[in-house]
Amino acid sequence: MASTIRVRATVSGDTTEVQALIQHPMDSGFVKDAQGQIIPAHFIQQLTFEHGGRTVFLANWGAAVSKDPYVKFSFKGGAKGDDLKINWMDNKGATDSTTAKIS
């Protein structure tokens, strides 16, 4: 199955800009389905980005982050061709990870 994680990491000068989009329902636990039943909370809690064995960004998310969450940040020190490891875990313990190349 295709990864749930889409990443674009581009270096410009000494800064690498990272954008990620993740396929996840991010159910808040406050919404009812068509039958009136609460859809249980189901959301990503932690998302990490690692470069060169170092965490460059750690997101802690609650249920208020939008469906198919998106995040953008930048860090110093990446180079073209470097690996960027991305990893998430949700409140049900599910995880996914991927490795992207910085371009």
Binding site: A2, R6, Q19, L21, Q23, D68
Partner: peptide, 15 residues
């Protein structure tokens, strides 16, 4: 649009 929400659908369609 920097990372559009239709991205996943587009990829699924391509496949």
């Amino acid at each position: 649009e920097q990372f559009p929400p239709y991205e996943f659908s587009l990829e699924a369609g391509k496949e």
